Simulated assay, not measured.
Amino acid sequence: MTVIEPHEVVSCLEQDKAAADDQAIVQLMFLDADLMPVGTGRPRFHGVTYSDRGLFDGIAALHRDLAHGEDELDLESSLIRLLDVLLTRHADALGAASPTLRPRSLRQVREMLHSQLNSNIKLDDLAAVAGCSKRHLIRSFRQAYGVPPHHYRTLLRLARAKSMLAAGRSVAETAAELGYCDQSQLNRHFRREFGVSAGGYARSVR
């Protein structure tokens, strides 16, 4: 995994002559400066190339989710989580963390997630309700409720989906009503959380 800081030149990777006939696939991710921590100065990285299998796998999974058209809240939350891991493991110290949000702000965010379960809520929308940065919101929400906002909403959706499927609704109807782009997206979330597809769950409870 290679990290290029802002204003540095991105050059093509040189292939080994012995591997000249092989194909190399390079996936790039450009990060907006607004996603970086606020008030601590620009982080500096210790090197250029890092052997970090866990982080590599997380970034690869994010690329796959982008290709599958996953929900924007899930994608941006995953990106910020991976960026936090990158900064924590491989950048200079970022200074003291911001204090957690007040309970009232977090309740307002949670109420928004409950009331707009089938909407394509963005992390910007939730941060605006909380009155803080996206990174601060994710950290504070996780501390208060055990999971970040996007995972909390996924659990809410899946709980509703289980009720709908048990009541005889089809997987396609359930996915559409809960704001998933198609039933394959609902199935992916079901397998990730419960180890079974939505259709498999429906058959087991009817």
Rank of each mutant, 00 (worst) to 15 (best):
C12V: 09
L83H: 03
D84W: 03
V85Y: 06
G195A: 08
R153I: 12
A67V: 12
P43F: 01
A128S: 09
R139D: 14
A172S: 14
Q143L: 11
Q15N: 09
H136M: 01
L94Y: 07
R142E: 15
L126K: 00
L55V: 12
Y201N: 06
G195S: 10
L35C: 02
D16A: 06
R81A: 11
L126N: 01
M112C: 13
L28C: 13
R110M: 09
I25R: 14
L28M: 15
A161I: 06
T49S: 12
G39M: 07
H68V: 15
I59P: 00
D34L: 02
A198P: 00
R110H: 12
L83T: 00
V205C: 08
S163M: 14
R157S: 09
L165Q: 12
R203A: 15
V196D: 14
H63W: 07
D124M: 11
K122Y: 06
Y180W: 04
D71T: 06
F45K: 01
V10C: 02
S115E: 15
L31S: 01
E111H: 11
A127Y: 01
V129K: 00
E14A: 09
G69Y: 00
G39I: 02
N118H: 12
R188L: 01
L106V: 05
A61V: 08
L87N: 03
F141P: 14
L155N: 14
I121T: 08
S133R: 03
N120P: 07
D92R: 08
G199N: 06
K134E: 14
F45P: 07
R135W: 03
R188S: 03
F194Y: 14
L158K: 07
F190N: 11
E5C: 00
L66H: 01
L66I: 05
L94F: 06
N187L: 04
Y50M: 08
L79Q: 10
P43R: 01
Y180C: 09
A161D: 15
M36T: 01
A18Y: 08
D32K: 07
Y180R: 05
R203I: 09
C132H: 06
S115M: 15
A91R: 02
A67D: 08
N118E: 13
D124Y: 00
H151V: 10
V205Q: 13
S98T: 05
A96T: 13
L28H: 13
P148R: 14
A176W: 03
E177C: 14
I80A: 08
G131K: 06
A202W: 10
F141A: 11
V38D: 13
S105Q: 14
S115H: 11
I121E: 10
A161E: 14
R110D: 12
D125M: 05
R157E: 15
G131F: 06
L75C: 07
V3E: 11
L35F: 01
